[in-house]
Simulated assay, not measured.
Amino acid sequence: MTTSGNDPFHTWLAVLAGEPELGLDPAWLSDEALAWLRAVRDAHGEVAPPYVPELMLERRAAVAETALAALRAAAERDLGSPLDLRPEVEAECDYDTTGSVAVFGEQVRALGPEEAKVTVADAVQTFVAHVHRTVWPTCPDHRTGLHPELTERRAVWHCRAGGHDLPMP
Rank of each mutant, 00 (worst) to 15 (best):
D31V: 08
E92M: 13
A74Q: 07
T11L: 15
A102T: 14
A123H: 07
A110L: 01
L83M: 09
Q125Y: 03
D25Y: 05
N6W: 10
A48P: 05
H147Y: 15
G105V: 12
P169N: 08
S30C: 11
E149L: 15
V52Q: 01
D94E: 08
C139R: 05
E54K: 04
E32Y: 05
T98K: 03
T98I: 02
E19C: 08
L37I: 09
R153D: 15
A155S: 12
T134V: 15
T2M: 05
A33R: 00
A121T: 09
P113T: 12
E54I: 04
G23Q: 04
P140S: 12
A161K: 11
A116V: 01
R60G: 00
V103L: 04
P20D: 09
A129E: 15
D78N: 11
A75S: 10
F9K: 11
D25W: 06
D122E: 14
A73Y: 09
G23E: 04
A39I: 00
A73D: 14
T138M: 10
P169C: 13
P26T: 09
D141K: 06
T66Y: 00
R77I: 02
E76I: 13
G80L: 03
L29T: 03
A62V: 02
L150F: 08
M168G: 02
A67M: 01
L16F: 11
A155D: 04
A48I: 11
A123W: 03
Q125W: 02
A61H: 06
E21N: 13
L166R: 10
A123G: 12
L29Q: 12
L16I: 08
H147A: 13
F127D: 00
V118H: 01
A61G: 15
A74I: 03
H44N: 13
E65M: 12
A39Q: 04
G105N: 11
T151V: 15
E46T: 09
T11D: 12
V40Y: 01
G145F: 06
G23W: 03
V135L: 12
R153M: 15
A121F: 02
H132K: 15
W28M: 09
A64G: 05
L34Q: 11
F104G: 02
V40I: 12
P137R: 06
V128H: 01
T97G: 13
S4A: 15
H10M: 07
F104H: 12
L85W: 06
P113K: 03
A17M: 06
D141E: 12
G45I: 05
H158Q: 14
A39L: 07
L83Y: 07
E76L: 12
A155E: 05
H10C: 06
P148H: 04
L146G: 01
M168A: 07
V52E: 02
A74L: 05
W28C: 05
L13G: 00
E106F: 09
L166E: 06
G145H: 07
Y51P: 00
R60Y: 05
D165M: 03
V120D: 02
E65Y: 03
D94I: 12
L37D: 01
A121K: 01
A74G: 10
T151S: 12
P8G: 09
G80N: 14
